[in-house]
Design a protein around this nucleic acid. Structure first.
Lengths: 191, 191
DNA sequence: AGATCCATGTAATCCGTTACATGATTGC
DNA sequence: GCAATCATGTAACGGATTACATGGATCT
């Protein structure tokens, strides 16, 4: 039950059309909650019908025409209540540790290069976050909202670091295990 | 598309009935992939119909009677192929950073105690992992499969540490922010 | 005028969650 | 024999993913 709230947040930060929201979900917001345009349009429809948002008055709103949405007081209220709700953390659901465990049963096979690939992807994402940090907050956050944005960003950084530290460990271990059988391991990117 | 493979892995490690699988998913496996008994029974049905597993011959298999499953060669082959598949990591989907970002827009409200609660939950899970590590691997892993189990466990530990480090940072920041309003006016901008 | 892209949507399917149902086993 | 519990399911709903459809704008 988080997508509607992600959308409300995004619309409060800046009223947008469905396609703009889709683009924004591919950038900053999407690093913590992804959504396809189909999900977004469907959810916008629901939110409008529920009276939490409304389409801004526009010339001729037909199919294929941009439709901007803004949040109504009722929507802001719903978001506020969600922020203060109590909600337990879910277990992480990542297939990679699962695949590793499966590899323990059917043999590691070709899993090592895949793990290297994942580490490199996580490193790339980490670099992206650091770049945001540098670009948007070199002088430190100014407003309260900026402080919170930076905090969220640092969350991404901490989590990515956790992944990278694990994946690096996994690469070492697996190199030993399958290195006993196969050849040396090459990594795409060293530092 | 990971639940069937999680089940295949579990069944290869040890043939089990639906209820036994459910219990195992509440323990070790469930720390990386959770599943309810309804999901498990449905998936067992599908896997059986697809010829990847079969119910072990038993006296009278009726409703309410235990039914043990084992993996067929075709199932093992499917699992092996999944291990070697290429599959991109998904973005983490955790509502908490999202709620924090929403708090940046509608005000932090009562979010601080909730974040403290989450940190404590993550700490508890971390302790649990460390206890597994101590209990099952004090003499170090012996077989290749044990090495991999330990590796997966350490994955949980690294990720939890990432969360805890972020949540602790968030608690510090938020205390400052909402402390600026609740308590005496201490507007000494740090940094 | 036709091709291409952009914005908005519909439809089908699968996965996950919650609520409920029924047969067997166990403890009193 | 009755209640509680265990094991195995069914049903309904909603979210997420993928494939496809349609109208408008733009470029050539």
């Amino acid at each position: 039950m988080s997508l509607p709230h992600a959308i409300l947040t995004a619309l409060l930060e800046k009223p947008s059309s469905g396609s703009e929201l889709t683009r924004r979900f591919d950038r900053s917001i999407g690093y913590f909650w992804s959504a396809t345009h189909q999900q977004i349009y469907r959810e916008l429809g629901k939110l409008e019908k529920a009276g939490l948002i409304r389409a801004l008055p526009s010339p001729i709103p037909t199919r294929g025409q941009k439709k901007e949405y803004e949040v109504l007081p009722k929507g802001r209220e719903e978001l506020r209540s969600w922020v203060n709700r109590r909600e337990d953390p879910k277990v992480a659901r990542d297939p990679l540790p699962l695949r590793l465990r499966a590899a323990g049963v059917v043999g590691v096979g070709d899993l090592l290069p895949e793990i290297v690939r994942h580490r490199d992807l996580h490193r790339a994402r980490l670099d992206e976050y650091r770049e945001f940090e540098r670009r948007d907050f070199t002088d430190g956050p100014r407003t309260e909202q900026e402080r919170i944005h930076l905090l969220v960003l640092r969350g991404g950084i901490d989590i990515e670091n956790g992944w990278i530290s694990w994946l690096t460990r996994a690469i070492d271990e697996l190199s030993e295990i399958s290195g006993d059988r196969g050849g040396p391991v090459s990594t795409a990117e060293e530092r």
